[in-house]
Computed example of a mutant assay.
Amino acid sequence: MQVALANGVGLNWREDGDPAGYPVVFANSLGTDMRLWDQVLPLLPRGLRIIRFDKRGHGLSDCPPAPYAMEDLVSDAEALLDGLGLRACVFVGLSIGGMIGQGLAARRPDLVAALVLSNTAAKMGDAAMWQTRIDAIRAGGIEALADAVMERWFSPAFLSRPELTAWRNMLTRTPVEGYVGCCRAIAGADLSESTSALSLPVLAIAGREDGASPPALVQGTADMIAGSRFAVIEGAGHLPCVEDPAAYAALLNDFLKEHAHV
């Protein structure tokens, strides 16, 4: 494991693949860590420099006190990529990771040459919804909402699989301050204006059974960006890279062949 001081926060990050290869950066969803991508990476083309990181308050990264703003999370990613000397990467972000990707591409187009927006949107939910979730977590911990979150994350078929236990544990072991901090960041973010102005290749991916960011929401954001592509993975929920890594990797590989020179 490696830790970089980025924007004043110690971020846990990992590099796989070819250190001299084309950079592809993966950013995780709320309540997960970089293991979110474990099943997809072996299915990607050889010759890529793959960077993953735990955003603040998640995984093995520092957990500053809540609340956070989306600008903080974007600045963390920006500082990490600058510190690693990355330029013109393909940035793959899922859920809040996709919001970070949108913000980073708008602020630093030199860092992001192409963008994958997975199960995300320019605006996700409203402030009242997020406040209700925060209040419930402050009262009863993440455990109080864990079963409901699993139902939003996964299709009914996956909910009966033994692997569900590991994902539920990943969620409930997320630091409360980190989870609540990122809830605040999402609640306060509306990226519609800056996302509409993006002019880079974009692939948007949705899961047909996603209860957190339904396909129509993801497509609505894709439609803001001229020339973007939109794809739906059938039978998968909010984390299609977990439920159907082969289908997910197939979409990524087609995009990477065009934009990552592999």
Rank of each mutant, 00 (worst) to 15 (best):
Cys182Ser: 06
Thr120Leu: 08
Ala113Thr: 01
Arg184Val: 05
Ile137His: 07
Glu193Leu: 07
Leu5Arg: 10
Ser155Arg: 01
Lys257Met: 14
Val176Thr: 10
Asp16Arg: 10
Gly178Ala: 06
Leu30Asn: 12
Met129Asn: 03
Asn169Gly: 00
Leu36Gln: 15
Ser199Gln: 09
Trp13Lys: 14
Pro64Trp: 09
Ser199Asp: 03
Val242Thr: 03
Ala127Val: 07
Asn12Met: 06
Arg108Ala: 15
Gly101Thr: 09
Trp37Gln: 13
Arg168Glu: 01
Val180Ser: 09
Gln102Leu: 13
Glu243Ile: 08
Asp76Tyr: 15
Gln39Ala: 15
Thr172Ala: 06
Phe255His: 11
Gly57Asn: 13
Arg208Glu: 15
Ala127Pro: 12
Ala187Lys: 02
Ile186Asp: 00
Phe154Tyr: 11
Ile50Thr: 14
Asp190Thr: 06
Gly47Asn: 15
Leu145Glu: 12
His261Pro: 01
Ala260Asn: 06
Trp37Ser: 09
Ser75Lys: 10
His261Glu: 14
Tyr248Pro: 15
Gly227Lys: 00
Cys63Ile: 10
Val92His: 07
Ser155Val: 03
Ile51Phe: 06
Ile50Gln: 08
Val24Phe: 10
Ala128Thr: 08
Thr221Cys: 09
Ala246Ser: 14
Arg56Met: 12
Leu41Lys: 12
Ala88Val: 02
Cys89Gly: 04
Arg49Glu: 11
Gly141Ala: 04
Ala4Arg: 14
Ala128Val: 04
Gly181Gln: 11
Gly207Met: 04
Pro162Phe: 07
Ser228Ile: 09
Arg108Lys: 12
Arg161Phe: 00
Thr195Gln: 00
Arg168Ala: 01
Gly101Cys: 06
Tyr179Asp: 08
Asp147Lys: 11
Arg56Glu: 12
Asp38Leu: 08
Phe158Pro: 00
Ile137Thr: 04
Ala139Gln: 04
Ala66Gly: 12
Gly188Arg: 02
Gly140Met: 12
Ala114Cys: 05
Pro19Glu: 14
Ile233Gln: 01
Ala106Ser: 11
Ser29Gln: 03
Asp54Asn: 08
Ser29Glu: 03
Ala231Arg: 09
Met70Asp: 05
Ser61Thr: 13
Lys257Leu: 15
Ser29Asn: 10
Leu203Phe: 02
Met1Trp: 08
Ala128Asn: 04
Glu163Trp: 01
Gly103Ser: 05
Gly188Ala: 10
Ala222Leu: 08
Ala236Gln: 04
Ala250Ile: 08
Leu164Cys: 02
Asn28His: 12
Gly31Ser: 05
Val92Cys: 13
Glu258Ala: 14
Asp62Gln: 11
Gly220Leu: 08
Met34Val: 05
Ser228Gln: 07
Asn28Asp: 12
Ala88Tyr: 02
Tyr248Asp: 11
Pro64Gly: 14
Gly178Ile: 03
Glu258Thr: 13
Leu256Glu: 11
Leu84Val: 00
Ala231Trp: 09
Pro240Ala: 06
